[in-house]
Nucleic acid binder design. Structure first.
Length: 275
DNA sequence: CGTATCGCGGGGTATTACTG
DNA sequence: CAGTAATACCCCGCGATACG
């Protein structure tokens, strides 16, 4: 199984296993490319057969997954909006995440030259993808590789596409807004009341649909983002103290921070820092 | 001084009932 | 089906304390 990564949440290159995963959803965006074979896939109320050369991107929140044990080789990438957002803040940047945000999914059947291109891009990500604690250079090279892939996807989205999923329903829009709000505010003190007010929903309804669509409670997700940010801070400067990072990422008490960090990462903050 | 562990109390979550 | 209200209970945040 994978360990949570800093920029890419999940990466499986040329996976050939036939394990049927249950229909699932998550707050991260997802991209799947079919290298060969075929794959019956289900998103929301839509189902279709993906074949060699197909590229599909998902907003992640709609229930999705394979329908049966199919024979195909595919690459699967998941990443969160927060990690990619910094890449879109340069002057004259395109809105990289727009294709992911606007619909439940986009799907393309790529021509030969585009297939060659994406094979190279995925290979490049594989080269810099790491498991465990990376150094900052690897992190940056991986980020650059992901940026290239997303630009490729953006480029594809400008041409007519094979299939385009219907726009997300209300719940998905609410949860996506919540995810965005969390990613912009998790460094600060963030209460459920503020959050609910920020996205104009009652906290009762908000917590319910969030759990329903993502499988996580709001606070599980907030902590996940905070710990991810903490890992980055330690990577960029090993001399930062645990306490300093604790406050920077929005935890108010170092003991909580240590406990949460250990639960999610597997080692204590101090051990991670010295690694 | 910085960090980890523990027990307790309150806040957040899950649940159910309800409205339009 | 979208959204609100009420409530019981669990878990997280908190402070105290221990440890290196």
């Amino acid at each position: 199984m994978h360990t949570p990564q800093s920029i890419i949440e999940f990466f499986a290159y040329r996976m050939a296993d036939r394990i049927v995963r249950f229909l699932h959803s998550h707050p991260e965006y997802e991209l799947i490319y079919i290298h060969s074979g075929w794959y019956n896939y289900f998103v929301g109320v839509h189902s279709f057969t993906l074949t060699e050369g197909d590229l599909i991107i998902l907003n992640g929140l709609s229930l999705h997954g394979p329908m049966m044990k199919d024979s195909c080789i595919r690459t699967d990438i998941r990443f969160s909006e927060a990690d990619v957002k910094p890449l879109t803040t340069l002057p004259d940047s395109v809105d990289l995440l727009k294709p992911f945000r606007d619909f439940q999914y986009y799907r393309w059947h790529l021509d030969l030259s585009r297939r060659n291109e994406i094979e190279q891009l995925l290979l490049n990500i594989r080269r810099f993808y790491y498991v465990g604690s990376p150094d900052l250079t690897s992190y940056n090279r991986l980020r650059a590789a992901l940026l290239e892939l997303l630009l490729f996807v953006y480029d594809c989205s400008l041409t007519p596409m094979e299939q385009k999923g219907s726009v997300p329903v209300h719940k998905e829009i609410h949860v996506r807004k919540t995810v965005t709000y969390i990613e912009e505010h998790f460094m600060n003190d963030l209460t459920l009341d503020e959050l609910a007010e920020g996205v104009h929903l009652s906290k009762f309804y908000l917590t319910r649909i969030f759990k329903e669509l993502t499988g996580l409670t709001v606070f599980e997700y907030i902590n996940k983002q905070r710990i991810k940010e903490a890992k980055l801070l330690f990577m960029s400067d090993r001399n930062r103290t645990v306490t300093e990072v604790c406050y920077k990422v929005g935890f108010k008490h170092p003991p909580n921070f240590s406990t949460a960090f250990k639960r999610l990462v597997g080692v204590t903050p101090e051990q991670f820092r010295k690694y």
